[in-house]
C-alpha cells in the first residue's frame, strides 16, 4: 500500500476515534422502560375506550327505551285507560297547571305531553353528564 493510502487510512481511523462517544450504561434500560410504560398506557387507553363505547351504547339504549316506554304510557293515558291514568295523572296535572301558568306569562301554553318530552330529554342529558363525570373521565385520569 502506498503512503497516500496509509495516511488516508490513519486519518479516517483518527477521525472515527475522535467522533466516537458512548451512552450511559443504563441507556437501553431507560428506553425499554419507557416503551413498556407507553405500551401499558396504550393498553389502558384501549380498555377505557371499550368501556366508553359500552357506556355510550348503554346511555342511548336507556334514552330510546325511556322514549318508547313514555310514548306507550302516554298513548294509554290518551286512550283514557284507567290504570295508566292513575299512574300518570299527578304528573300530567302538574304539567298542565304549569302550562296554564306559562300561557299567562308568554301568551302560549305547551301541552303537558310536550313538557314530559322536555323533562325526559333533560333527565337523559343529566344521566349522561353524571356517567361522563363519574365513570368515563375518571377512567382516563
Amino acid at each position: 500500500m502506498n503512503d497516500f493510502n496509509e495516511i488516508e487510512k490513519f486519518l479516517d481511523s483518527g477521525i472515527k476515534e475522535s467522533l466516537s462517544v458512548k451512552t450511559r450504561d443504563d441507556f437501553s434500560d431507560k428506553v425499554m422502560l419507557e416503551i413498556k410504560m407507553i405500551q401499558e398506557f396504550e393498553r389502558q387507553d384501549k380498555k377505557t375506550g371499550k368501556l366508553f363505547n359500552v357506556m355510550i351504547a348503554g346511555v342511548f339504549t336507556v334514552i330510546i327505551m325511556s322514549g318508547v316506554l313514555l310514548a306507550y304510557l302516554l298513548g294509554i293515558s290518551g286512550g283514557s285507560g284507567e290504570s295508566s291514568e292513575s299512574f300518570l295523572s299527578p304528573v300530567s296535572e302538574f304539567f298542565d297547571a304549569l302550562g296554564y301558568k306559562l300561557s299567562g306569562i308568554f301568551g302560549f301554553a305547551p301541552s303537558g305531553e310536550v313538557f314530559m318530552y322536555i323533562f325526559l330529554a333533560a333527565a337523559a342529558a343529566g344521566v349522561y353528564a353524571l356517567i361522563d363525570r363519574l365513570v368515563i373521565k375518571r377512567g382516563y385520569n
Binding site: K22, T23, V31, M32
Partner: peptide
C-alpha cells in the same frame, strides 16, 4: 417488544 433492545444496543453509541 424485547427484540427492540437489540436495535437500541446496536445503534445507541453511533446515534449519540
Amino acid at each position: 417488544t424485547a427484540l427492540f433492545r437489540e436495535i437500541v444496543d446496536t445503534y445507541r453509541n453511533m446515534a449519540l
